[in-house]
Nucleic acid binder design. Structure first.
Length: 489
DNA sequence: TGAAATGTTGGGGCG
DNA sequence: ACGCCCCAACATTTC
């Protein structure tokens, strides 16, 4: 936490620059709070760099979300007396230019987590420092500073359970910082018009399902948190695996863009512990999985591109463009997989249980490289997050530090029957199967022909036959994984 | 945060 | 009454 600088006479005209990234909020925003506490007038800016070297360019769903989030933030800032300055271009160049144009005496930003952004920010810190401008980096995105968490031996955690124990031992004590009621905006600098950034799709406009599902921005995040606390949190451990129920928090995209701080979510959930005094450990641990992903990315910068376990270089992945497209479109012929992929396409989001099922199917039954699934999720998820996406795909593929064992291959039929027993989820997203009885919904190829006919299903015509036989796909994956060389570590 | 194959047990039908 | 077989149901191990 930065100490407040004495405001007043001499400093009044020299602004502080707040450089935003994935911390688009006013409440519990340490960078904004520190800048405001400096007593200087504020310049609040967001820079979009579409071609930063080494960066993962924002996916389509992320761009849609970002538009809404920036638009909401612009209004929230304006209501408190500050403008949001938008710039697009080379990030380093634009920050230096903003500093020069504003004559900022200090700059505050969130601690960057993405490797490419860390490099740029490090460079900026020294360049600005040479100009006499201090770049203050605040923890705006995580509950726990990744550099503070170490094993007993002093190394980085590689396994979730001890990591989470360390987090629970430290605890989350600080009360969130209240949103400033009034900001002292500096003389506004030139800003791009958000509409000119073209972040929203036009031809075609595929965002209808996203608009129905989400309200980007801090107010939308607060609403979602309130609904979750009042409803599903109490039954979270029991219901969160049922994709047909609205029993998860759906906070992931809000957390990704920092529209709500993980500290605020943690404290609210911990306080709202259900009657009986039981703390909502299951949900808090999901927040810690998010932390663990960021932690892994911090300590393994190549996590999004390369398997953590080097023996996976020898994996005989298949090149299967047709299989990949069928998976992307939700036309694999496996109902629970297709339902998940279609939910993703329509809503920009997929239930966590189904993410595991669809990912396992791609990586194991189809033996397609996890990076291809990662790239698709990156483009289509509104909560696409470099760390979480990479860590979770590596977890499924078995190539991560604390990964699912190679032999854990989800049978999508059994998973469907277990977690979507009445078929509500499949019926919603695969309507061409909706008339099938639950007993056959998850494996329509096993249904008697007369039953298919009565339900209006013609396999191979109205709905695909499976693109891979589940038993032989499983056997092929087991053989490939079993034949990997012994771990070198 | 599995699934499938294999092994074990115990109830009931039956000669 | 007894042994035998079948086969759920459950437990263990293997991938």
């Amino acid at each position: 936490m930065e100490l407040a600088k004495p405001g007043g006479e001499g400093t009044g005209a020299t602004p502080a620059l707040v450089w935003l990234w994935q911390d688009l909020r006013l409440t519990d925003q340490p960078a904004l709070a520190a800048a405001a506490a400096s007593g200087r007038p504020l310049v609040v800016a967001f820079v979009l760099d579409d071609s930063a070297p080494g960066a993962w360019a924002l996916g389509g769903a992320s761009r849609w979300w970002l538009h809404g989030s920036l638009d909401a933030l612009r209004r929230d800032l304006a209501a408190r007396g500050a403008a949001l300055i938008l710039r697009r271009g080379n990030l380093r160049h634009e920050i230096l230019r903003l500093a020069a144009e504003s004559g900022a005496g200090e700059i505050h930003c969130g601690e960057p987590l993405e490797p490419w952004l860390r490099g740029i920010t490090d460079g900026l810190a020294s360049e600005l420092g040479a100009l006499g401008v201090v770049l203050h980096r605040h923890n705006t995105r995580l509950l726990f500073d990744p550099t503070m968490l170490r094993t007993q031996a002093g190394g980085a955690f590689g396994v979730f359970t001890p990591f989470s124990r360390a987090c629970h031992a430290i605890g989350v004590a600080d009360a969130p910082i209240a949103a400033p009621t009034r900001l002292c905006g500096a003389k506004p600098l030139a800003s791009d018009d958000l509409a000119d950034w073209g972040l929203r799709p036009e031809q075609p406009d595929w965002a209808g399902g996203l608009r129905e599902t989400w309200q980007p921005g801090e107010a939308g995040a607060t609403l979602r948190l309130g609904e979750f606390l009042a409803g599903a949190l109490a039954v979270y451990d029991r219901a969160r695996d049922i994709p047909g129920h609205a029993s998860t928090s759906m906070l992931s995209p809000h957390l990704h863009w920092g529209e709500i701080s993980p500290r605020r979510v943690w404290l609210a959930a911990a306080r709202a512990a259900p009657v009986g005094g039981k703390s909502p450990l299951g949900f808090l641990n999901e927040l810690l999985w998010r932390e663990f992903s960021a932690y892994l990315l911090w300590h393994h910068p190549h996590l999004p591109e390369r398997p953590l376990r080097t023996e996976f270089a020898a994996m005989p992945w298949r090149n299967d463009p047709a299989g990949l497209v069928a998976w992307q479109r939700g036309e694999t012929g496996i109902p629970i997989v297709d339902a998940g992929m279609r939910q993703l396409w329509r809503c920009g989001w997929m239930h966590n249980r189904v993410r595991m099922i669809t990912a396992s199917f791609l990586v194991k039954h189809l033996l397609i490289p996890w990076q291809q699934g990662e790239a698709w999720f990156w483009d289509t998820l509104v909560d696409a997050d470099l760390a979480a996406n990479a860590a979770n795909w590596q977890w499924v593929a078995g190539s991560g530090a604390d990964a699912a064992p190679y032999f854990r291959i989800f049978n999508p039929v059994l998973q469907g029957r277990k977690f979507d027993p009445d078929g509500a989820y499949v019926r919603r997203f695969v309507p061409e199967l909706a008339q099938l009885p639950a007993a056959f919904l998850h494996a329509p190829w096993e249904a008697p022909l007369a039953m298919l006919k009565a339900a209006g299903v013609a396999l191979g015509a109205t709905y695909p036959t499976p693109i891979v036989d589940l038993a032989s796909g499983r056997a092929r994956a087991l053989a490939a994984f079993r034949n990997l060389p012994r771990p070198t570590a």
